[in-house]
Design a binder for these strands. Structure first.
Length: 424
RNA sequence: GUGACUGUAGCUCAGCUGGUUAGAGCGUCGGUCUGUGGAACCGAAGGCCGCGGGUCCGAAUCCCGUCAGUCACCCCA
């Protein structure tokens, strides 16, 4: 008994009509990125494992437990990419793109993380992201943030929120970390096990805990803003000013801390509350040290990654179920002779039209053909049967208004082309 | 990795405390009906009741395991 074959855990098939919605979103993303002057980069779906260990950080959850790592036949350790930033930097270094000055790249495609699936979290998911290299200016942060926000506004996602924060740089972060530890140390015994673990590993994440036992101490914890060095403070203020200038609404959330090692200064997140526990649609920030850490020159950088599954979930939650619009034409041939006459016309129309031309080749009754046309959401049907053949005509039916007209078979091509292109 | 809930027809689900041949709606196919569609009526096809084991005279039903889904924790897009 052969076992039933299913998609691997945490993966899914994208079927019509959802696949059409994805295509639309993707083309919109390509256009948006282009208007901001970003060019697409595509990198391999797998990389040497070492790239992620060095790029994302050995201590990160991604590297410690979420990577799809395998050994190939040549004994190399490879990993399906769990994120795009490290591969993009690797490719830019490999092809010496940084020597060209400022570099604006975007990407769209799948990522892989070995996690327990839940709402908004899968083992294969898809991200759209941008990386702006070569500018340390706050304007670059704002450019990247407003690009992300532009996508959100284009779809009128009203419940999306932008939250920003600054997590300082290597000069001021150690001092803040020390201050945080000093604040929490006396209370750790009464706090969650989780909080104690974070105190060891990554004190900044203490601020992130949702455990009620920790709430009280988090509320009284010092904010990073008070510890920012002069340069970081100036940068953060400039980011806020520019965001107001370009009309992007935001709130400062001192509890936003990115999980990956390479972030510094600006961090931001766009969230929606229709997503359940995984509320973040988009996350990003500045990572001025990463290029150097991967063996390149000092190149400041800022970027974000946006989860396409989550974005689609928000869109679906917000969109009212609307009937698919009718498009194109169904060619209905009643009988073999009619099929022979209609097939060349269908081929010709497919060459000339942007709209779909459907045709079913079974011997069916007219009724059955019309049902199929309806299911295809065709706008028109052209019907050719023995009567029409005899009179040299063809019936053109408007499926929306349920009206027929007869026209000479020879002029069908031109008339149909005009009607279908006009849309209605 | 941890926890809770759920796996019965292509889809949505019913099947009570174990009791003979497994149920509905939608969908599909056919007919009423060679010729006008979001329809009606009639009929048909479609099920190792997720998989494996156990208890029992008897398991879709109870127990254990396993796989999968869902949601949450963790973490993040």
């Amino acid at each position: 008994m052969p076992e039933k074959l299913t998609a691997p855990r945490g993966t899914s098939d994208l079927l019509p009509p959802e696949s059409a919605r994805w295509s639309e979103l993707e083309s919109r993303i390509h256009r948006l990125a282009a208007t901001f002057g970003y060019a697409e980069i595509r990198t391999p779906i797998f990389e040497t494992t070492q790239l992620f260990v060095r790029g994302v950080g050995e201590q990160s959850d991604i590297v410690e437990k979420e990577m799809y790592t395998f050994t190939d036949r040549g004994g190399r350790s490879l990993t399906l990419r769990p994120e795009w930033t490290a591969p993009v930097v690797r490719a830019a270094l490999e092809h010496d793109l940084f020597s060209w000055g400022p570099l604006r790249l975007y990407y769209i495609g799948p990522i892989f993380r070995y996690e327990r699936p839940q709402r908004g979290r899968y083992r294969q998911s898809h991200q759209f992201g941008v990386e702006s290299f070569g500018s340390a200016a706050p304007e670059a942060d704002v450019e990247v943030i407003s690009l992300a926000w532009e996508l959100v506004s284009a779809y009128a996602i009203t419940d999306a929120h932008l939250e920003i924060n600054s997590i300082g740089d290597e000069r001021c972060r150690p001092q803040y970390r020390a201050a945080l530890l000093a604040h929490f140390e006396p209370h750790l015994a009464s706090m969650s096990a989780d909080a104690r673990r974070r105190a060891e590993r990554n004190p900044l994440r203490l601020l992130d805990s949702k455990d009620p036992a920790d709430e009280r101490h988090i509320a009284t914890a010092p904010a990073f803003e008070a510890f920012l060095c002069a340069e970081c403070r100036e940068h953060f203020e400039a980011v806020k000013t520019y965001l107001q200038l370009v009309d992007v609404p935001f709130t400062v959330n001192p509890r936003i801390v990115r999980g990956l090692d390479y972030y510094g200064r600006t961090v931001f997140e766009i969230t929606s509350n229709v997503l359940g526990a995984q509320s973040s649609i988009c996350g990003g920030g500045r990572y001025d040290g990463l290029v150097k850490a991967l063996g390149g020159p000092e190149v400041p950088a800022v970027g974000f990654a946006l989860g396409l599954e989550r974005f689609m979930m928000v869109l679906e939650a917000l969109s009212r179920a609307s009937a698919r619009p009718r498009r194109g034409i169904e060619a209905i041939a009643l009988g073999a002779q009619a099929r022979t006459l209609l097939t060349p016309l269908v081929t010709e129309l497919r060459r000339r039209l942007e709209h779909p031309v459907f045709m079913d080749y079974q011997d069916r009754k007219l009724l059955a053909h019309l049902k199929i046309a309806d299911r295809n959401r065709a706008r028109y049907a052209m019907i050719l049967g023995s009567e029409e053949i005899a009179s040299g005509e063809i019936v053109l039916r408007d499926l929306e208004h349920r009206t027929d007209r007869r026209l000479p078979f020879d002029s069908a091509k031109v008339v149909v082309e005009q009607l279908v292109e006009a849309g209605d």
